[in-house]
């Protein structure tokens, strides 16, 4: 609700606010946009392919016009296409602005606040990654338009402090661009993933039973890390798999890095207790360190005076009024 009102505010009157902010932050060298003289082409068309074509045409015209008439152009909800793993993906940036000098700039409008010119870094990072994909898609189009150049910085527009007034910040997305380019080239083609699955595997939610779906998901190997929990709905499933396998990485990437060749909980504990682990030498530095760690820990816990039971928790008792679900 508030987000919609905000976006509307930013784009009102032919994008006056948006362009003012953009010119202020990224308009160096270009004449300021004059409200009322900004071109806002109509991008409607039938179907995604139609819209993509209409957007490309508008971009071409804007760049052509730019050379001549020093006009700013604002494209609202353009549609772009990008080939991902062999299939086209359709992308819809909030806005793309074409400067009079032919420069194309991605604008992303978000509803998280910028307070005292700073914003939640993880949200900014996510917005940067999203905008970088748009920049990549625009580059594909710009390659076929003379005089066009896509800016490697994007404009991030957010509410200012606690209000709904817009403020903006320039975000350099070159790092996110190079990451996305590499990922796109590496991304396994969907055909290849499908080829490795058992015959008849289906992910169709309508037609499969929960057991069939679980089996289908299980057939695709996963690389779980706790960070997945915040990012992906399948994370709980992958976590369960990792935990059943006793994989050390369920505890986090940092833990995994410390333990060298010992990859399961069982192997680590066995090594720490002085038992031999197949495939790992007894003088392996991690094994030596673990045994020492175990000895030091045991020594410290023993040195606690008698009667100090708090050290090892006994069975707890449920206090009055506590909701069982929360423990």
């Amino acid at each position: 609700m508030r987000g919609n009102a905000f976006e509307a505010r930013v784009k009102a009157d032919g994008g006056t606010e948006l362009l003012r902010l953009l010119h202020e932050r990224m308009g160096a060298g270009a004449r300021p946009p004059v409200p009322g003289e900004v071109l806002v082409p109509d991008l409607t068309a039938a179907g995604p392919e139609g819209r993509v074509a209409r957007t490309a045409l508008a971009l071409r015209e804007a760049t052509g016009a730019a050379g001549g008439s020093a006009a700013w152009t604002l494209l609202v909800h353009p549609l772009l296409a990008l080939e991902v793993a062999g299939s086209p993906a359709y992308l819809e940036p909030d806005a793309v602005v074409v400067r009079p000098d032919g420069r194309w700039i991605v604008v992303e409008i978000k509803s998280f606040p910028m307070i005292d010119s700073s914003a939640d870094p993880s949200k900014v990072g996510a917005a940067a990654r999203q905008a970088a994909v748009y920049v990549l898609a625009l580059e594909r189009v710009a390659a076929r338009v003379t005089g066009a150049a896509v800016d490697h910085s994007v404009l991030l527009v957010c509410p200012r402090d606690f209000s709904n007034l817009p403020t903006a910040s320039v975000v350099d997305v070159r790092k996110q661009l190079s990451v996305t380019r590499r990922q796109l080239t590496r991304l396994t083609r969907i055909d290849d993933i499908a080829a490795s699955l058992p015959e008849g595997t289906s992910f169709d939610l309508e037609r499969c039973s929960p057991a069939e779906l679980t089996a289908a998901v299980d057939a695709v190997s996963a690389a779980y890390a706790p960070e997945c929990l915040a990012a992906c709905e399948l994370a709980f499933h992958c976590r369960g798999q990792a935990r059943s396998a006793g994989a050390v990485e369920a505890l986090g990437r940092g833990v995994r890095g410390e333990l060298g060749g010992l990859t399961t909980v069982g192997a680590v504990l066995a090594a720490a207790r002085g038992e031999s682990t197949p495939g790992v030498a007894d003088d392996d530095p991690t094994v030596v360190a673990l045994r020492r760690a175990a000895a030091l820990r045991a020594e410290a816990l023993e040195s606690v005076p008698e009667g100090l039971e708090a050290v090892s928790r006994g069975p707890g008792s449920v206090p009055e009024g506590a909701v069982a679900g929360c423990r």
Partner: peptide, 24 residues
């Protein structure tokens, strides 16, 4: 995370209960 704390975590995994990191 230090190796001693990692070890405590793994002991917790095995025992199903949290393990102490401190005595005070």
């Amino acid at each position: 995370m230090s190796l001693i704390n990692t070890l405590a975590r793994l002991e917790a995994v095995e025992s199903g209960r949290a393990q102490p990191l401190t005595t005070v």
